[in-house]
Design a protein around this nucleic acid. Sequence first.
DNA 1: TTGTGTTTTATTGCCTCC
DNA 2: GGAGGCAATAAAACACAA
Length: 257
Amino acid sequence: MKRFNSSDSLAAFISITSSKEDRTQNTNQGYSRDFQAMLDSLEEEDYIEEANLGSEKKRRLTLHQVKALEKNFEVDNKLVPERKLKLAEELCLQPRQVAIWFQNRRARWKTKQLERDYGTLKANYEALNLDYSNLEQKNEALAQKVKELKAKLREEIVDSSHSVKEEYHVSESDNHDFSENKNSSAVTKDHSNVSSSNELMNCFNLTDSRAILGNRYQVYQPHLMKLEEQSLFSAEESCNFFSVDQAPTLHCYFPEQ
DNA sequence: TTGTGTTTTATTGCCTCC
DNA sequence: GGAGGCAATAAAACACAA
């Protein structure tokens, strides 16, 4: 526990009763003339007040003392006993006063540092937030583009399936053999009602197209198989493709290159 | 002049280190 | 166990609007 002791009181007494010459000798080398004049006037007032000092009122340090302490604080914000004693002697303060000043000054510095850190973090957060918003916008735009491209792709699929049907009808009319392919004609009828590419793909998926169409249309099989693969990639998936929470998995688009 | 908020100086109690 | 640091706080000094 630290308490004032007799030596501190003596030091206080000495600092208060030290001569003005001693005090001003230590003051402010290198300040402008106006500033020096102001300091001198302040010191004068301080000195007059100190001369009348009988009470134990709390007194503020003089500008000169504060400046000197600040300079020392800039050099090193911690005090070793030797420096504390030297400073106290130079500034006509008790060593304890110097120690307390440094302690309070460190506390103020810490507060300011926290404020600075907070400001920096806040600025970083805002910049990051802005980046995030921009990425989100780009993500939405890209998802929309994916949607459009998929719709276009479906249209092309439907068109190509129509051309397959037409070719099939032409070949059937050439054969005039309906007795053998009753089922296949029913399937063809179904196909005529297919409006979407997914439905079309389901039709080909559920029925063995080779059995229906015969070896003649095997040439279209790879194409149909491709359609099945593409149908696995739904519209919903494409919308969530660039989900922010999840890294995009492009292997869906580029299975094997 | 005075009430109020802020800053500065100082105290207290606890903790760590040697 | 003593010295010194820190956080929390008290209290004086100061600034300033009303």
